[in-house]
């Protein structure tokens, strides 16, 4: 059916994990964003992929065209995208605040809550 999404998901997850294991906290944030993309695509592809069959119903009809995409994963991914945006924003604020307090962005050094 489709071969490209598995490769894209794999590459995104690999790049995301690699970045999340770096010391710089900015890289951590970028890694998180990449991982979110990977996860979203993973859920999206789980419903099966259809070209040119949006889950929309024509005016006056009561059912979508026969070959339509599964709307449920799309609904899930839609909220997931917005939420991961919110979490990313929170993480950015957290990193900023941590940098301000500790004067370092080295994740390896952030091993304690004491200053």
């Amino acid at each position: 059916m489709n071969l490209i999404l598995p490769f894209v998901v794999g590459a995104l997850v690999a790049a995301g994990l690699y970045m999340m294991m770096r010391r710089s906290s900015i890289k951590l944030l970028i890694g998180f964003a990449l991982l979110s993309h990977g996860a979203n695509l993973l859920v999206f592809s789980a419903g099966g992929l259809v070209r040119g069959g949006a889950p929309l119903i024509e005016q006056g009809e009561s059912l979508p065209p026969a070959a339509h995409a599964d709307p449920l994963p799309q609904a899930l991914v839609l909220t997931a995208m917005v939420i991961s945006f919110g979490v990313l924003a929170f993480a950015i604020a957290l990193v900023l605040r941590t940098y301000r307090e500790t004067k370092t962005d080295d994740v390896d050094k952030m091993t304690t809550t004491e200053r």
Partner: peptide, 21 residues
Amino acid sequence: VLGVVTQIIFSLATKSPLHWE
């Protein structure tokens, strides 16, 4: 969504009371 996004943008764009490096 509008409130969340603008809140986040404003918060991060505002110059902090402290002197950011």
